[in-house]
């Protein structure tokens, strides 16, 4: 098997890795399971595609997608902090609303970008003689965003955001508006998710209203796989893990498909993967406790029976 065959999976892994970095920010840093992602990912695709079709420069369209994603995150943040709607529900509400918004933006369910000028056509025009150009582009972009995120999380603002996810009482008692931090975190996260969506749409050559379904689970799977591979002792390692997790997830899918898995079964596989990873610690403790109790019972057969016999 040549490298060329898996390079597509690597590219996908890296571009979805940008989305995974966004999910890392909410899920791990803010401790907030944000389902907005399933709406903000196609939102990014929709905004970018609609703008490109109407003649906007691809870079501008991509940046507009990022801003739109941030706006979507702000909506979830406001629902959660100001209107006190539970976090999960706030995300679901925004996601549901975004489905209509995305269709409005696109005007139909699918926008093909085949004969349009996109970031990738421009890229190939400029650097025509580089092999694996897309892969190189995604690698550099994903790493750049990862490093920027690392730097952000070690600023005063970023540390306050991490503390908000860790212990809101504490950081509030140090003068930080934790509500503002949650809103800012959701903005940033969904901005990255929408950016990822905009890149995916241009990369695959179309935006589709249904392209967001299951995005959050893929993001969670990436973050969780990443944690399994690289222990997240530092921010640097944690974000690297999220990126690597996204790539490994794509490679796993690639091999699963090659081994004859039906593409329609992918989502259940992903769901099972996430369930397995999330429940592993619990199952491990239950199992260890069972083993310990069985050993105790054997020991008691000797230890306690003897005492009972003496008294009788």
């Amino acid at each position: 098997m040549t490298f060329q065959i898996i390079s597509g999976s690597l590219e996908q892994g890296l571009v979805y890795g940008i989305m995974a970095l966004g999910v890392y920010l909410t899920f791990r840093v803010l401790n907030f399971a944000d389902l907005t992602v399933d709406g903000s990912f196609p939102l990014g695709g929709a905004v970018a595609a609609a703008l490109i079709v109407s003649g906007a420069p691809p870079l501008l369209a991509t940046l507009a997608a990022l801003l739109a994603g941030m706006l979507a995150g702000a909506v979830t943040g406001l629902l959660y902090t100001k209107l006190r709607i539970a976090g999960l529900l706030a995300g679901i509400l925004t996601m549901t609303g975004l489905y209509s918004v995305n269709l409005r933006i696109m005007g139909r369910a699918n926008i093909p970008l085949l004969r349009q000028e996109t970031l990738f056509t421009q890229l190939h025009d400029t650097f025509a003689n580089i092999t694996y150009l897309d892969l190189l582009f995604f690698l550099l972009l994903a790493l750049l965003i990862k490093l920027l995120l690392d730097a952000f999380l070690s600023t005063d603002f970023g540390m306050a955001m991490r503390a908000t996810g860790d212990n809101p009482d504490m950081i509030r008692s140090l003068g930080v508006d934790t509500q503002a931090m949650v809103i800012a975190g959701l903005c940033l996260s969904n901005g990255l998710v929408a950016l990822s969506g905009a890149l995916v749409a241009q990369y695959q050559g179309f935006a589709d209203a249904g392209m967001g379904i299951g995005t959050i689970v893929v993001g969670l799977a990436s973050v969780i796989i990443g944690t399994g591979i690289i222990r997240p002792y530092t921010i640097f390692r944690a974000t690297l893990g999220a990126l690597l997790g996204a790539v490994i997830y794509r490679l796993a899918i690639f091999f699963a498909l090659r081994m004859g898995l039906a593409p329609t079964d992918l989502r259940i596989m992903t769901a099972v993967l996430v369930i397995g990873a999330l429940s592993a610690p619990t199952i491990k403790t239950i199992w260890a406790e069972r083993v310990r109790m069985r050993r105790q019972a054997e020991e008691n057969a000797v230890l306690c029976r003897k005492g009972v016999g003496d008294n009788a």
Binding site: S154, D156, D166, N167, L174, G175
Partner: peptide, 26 residues
């Protein structure tokens, strides 16, 4: 205190009590 953050990070956050938290290195 924030359990997942280091001793140093916790103290720096306290050092900035009441200040605007900007994008300079913490």
């Amino acid at each position: 205190t924030a359990a997942s953050m280091t001793v140093e990070e916790n103290l720096v956050m306290a050092w900035r009590r009441g200040e605007r938290r900007g994008l300079r290195r913490g």
